[in-house]
Design a protein around this nucleic acid. Sequence first.
DNA 1: GCACCATATCGTCAGGCGGA
DNA 2: TCCGCCTGACGATATGGTGC
Length: 206
Amino acid sequence: MWWHQHNLCFRHPVEEDYSSGDLEEKVATIAETDESAESEGVIDSHKRREILSRRPSYRKILNELSSDVPGVPKIEEEKSEEEGTPPNIATMAVPTSIYQTSTGQYTATGDMPTYQIRAPTTGLPQGVVMAASPGSLHSPQQLAEEATRKRELRLMKNREAAKECRRRKKEYVKCLESRVAVLEVQNKKLIEELETLKDICSPKTD
DNA sequence: GCACCATATCGTCAGGCGGA
DNA sequence: TCCGCCTGACGATATGGTGC
């Protein structure tokens, strides 16, 4: 199965980034009693990064799982209600008087998150001005503004992508957890069945 | 109340991957 | 080949629990 290709399980204080590793291993161990390949000691961070980045996306993984196993739900393309952000709420880059905390960007005047502003039904977030064609840019200042605008747009998109990725990862971990539960029950049943059959096939001689 | 620790959450960067 | 998306890694910050 796919998880055998990603048999690294590194400990890290930040649970979010690593928690699925243990679970995957557990599922793998239960599903097929295979040798649980542990991370072979010291791997330099570069190599580790290289290896880990080859993991396919959670959507892909889970969808593959769901095709293999009937009970496994597929990850939907968009599931905005769970995020608390309706589809027409777009993240905005606010150019002036904002500061940023880990919980978002705030205006200098209050606690109101400024990046969640309801946008019209168009694909583009409100406040994101369409890029001027490169030919129409003249002064260095305009070029700098354009670069800044592009950067903000990129950061905004990546911010949203990271949120979505984390949401999928949580869903994926939940899915693995339920799979573990199911497999544990199955395993228990099979062991019981085996014991019963043993009893039947080898009757005690008096 | 405070310091400290563990865990959770977030934003950003870097780099791989897949589609055009 | 380029571009956009996805996700691991990392650091910063928030939050909750515990001992003093």
